[in-house]
Amino acid sequence: MAHSKSSHQQRIGDQPWLRRLLILLALGVITLLLLVPLLAIFAQALSAGSGVFFSNLTDQYTLHAIGLTLLVAALTVPLNLVFGVLLAWLVTRFEFPGRKLLMTLIDIPFAVSPVVAGLMYLLLYGSNGWIGSWLMDQDVQLMFAWPGIVMVTVFITCPFVARELIPLMQQQGSSEEEAALSLGASGWQMFRRVTLPNIQWALLYGVVLTNARAVGEFGAVAVVSGNIRGETNTLPLHVELLYQDYNLVGAFTSASLLASIALLTLVIKTFLEWRQHQAAR
């Protein structure tokens, strides 16, 4: 890792002109592919003036879409936080048959296309599905209602927390926890005083990623939503709906909200990475 200061060997990229050219190229690509499209979202959203921007933002259905999206995130994140910690704990602190298989299974939501995930739930819980037809008789509606949206979002985002924690907990090992136990701490005390402080930054990082994906998920949600305006329309679906409607400014207004959430996520993520790095020292 350490640079050897005495080395004067010529390597590719050492010539100043080449270095500058490469930097310029990288900046150009980033500007064209990332920065300009991002700016275009905000420019389009504000293209008809801030008055129209705010009237689009405070539209009854936009507000509902924001509320629903927040509700989905508020239910998904705590659920996957608990699930992720339990799962990471299980596979890093215990040896049991099928442990490797379980670690592979965690990745299924990453491997499966979101649309397929949505269809799986629809075929199972839809009114023609195995469980769905029974639920229909009980007058319980899961698909095409907010519970269905939460279900697929939980599925899509469930690996994030566990995936962040597992490598860290593997690396840290269980010696500190064993020490706590041998000094007479209860299980809960050990978790609170030893485990949690050790994993807190990775855990928060996982939560931020889970939240970002829960807010932005489109494919799986589109399948089970039923697109009922003011009822099952999340923010990403709302963007598409407005776009199909030739309401470009409205679509970009909602899109700019999502982009703002993404930018905020990036800031928090960078901060957490920095903290994690500090904690590791």
């Binding site: 839809g126 023609n128 698909m143 697109n227 305006r229 003011g230």
Partner: peptide, 20 residues
């Protein structure tokens, strides 16, 4: 009146699957 919008084939599919 609540509205659901989408491609009409997809909408029909959703109704068969339980969109009421």
């Amino acid at each position: 009146v609540r509205q659901s919008h989408g491609g009409s084939s997809r909408q029909a599919q959703a109704i068969i699957q339980g969109l009421r």
